[in-house]
């Protein structure tokens, strides 16, 4: 490929040259051409000076207090935290279940057993409603980790 200025390489190499990203052979080819081509030298200069302008720019950045106070937890610690409650709940249900079985066995008459059934179903309903609320909340609040 030949260009009006006599260059025999792709013009993009000029950018690679400015960025120091060329392999030695290409860098040398560009270098040699630049020695006697004013228009390609001008292009190198322009690219270099625009880059100086952009890279030396500073923008207003958010202050520390505008960011969430803590970095969000990584999955490992979130998993641990998420597993914590279900495990605890399972343990509580197990303990309650064993206790209940004992009480059922020890109960002397129908009335005591009825009271037991009523108490357990009341508590289960309560537990279920809290659980449903929590599930709903965790679905709608996608920023929970950030605002935690």
């Amino acid at each position: 490929m030949s260009e009006p200025c006599g260059r025999t390489f792709d013009e993009a190499l000029i950018s690679g040259y400015v960025d120091g990203a060329l392999v030695q052979g290409d860098a040398q080819r560009v270098q040699i051409h630049l020695e006697d081509c004013a228009s390609c030298r001008a292009l190198v200069d322009e690219i270099t000076s625009v880059r100086k302008v952009t890279i030396s720019s500073a923008f207003a950045t958010p202050a520390d207090h505008e960011w969430p106070a803590e970095a969000p937890r990584s999955t490992a610690s979130r998993t641990a935290r998420r597993l914590g409650w279900p495990v605890l709940a399972a343990w509580a249900i197990l303990v309650a279940g064993v206790g209940l079985l004992e009480a059922w066995r020890d109960a002397d008459d129908l009335l005591e057993r009825l009271i037991l059934v009523a108490g357990v179903s009341g508590l289960s309903l309560l537990f279920l409603s809290v659980l449903l609320d929590r599930l709903k909340a965790s679905k709608s609040d996608r920023y929970q980790e950030v605002h935690k």
Binding site: P68, A71, P72, S74, T75, Y143, E145, V146
Partner: peptide, 14 residues
Amino acid sequence: VAQDAMLRFFTTLD
């Protein structure tokens, strides 16, 4: 976007 990206970065850190 930056906050979402940081969140995503840390949740995929593993």
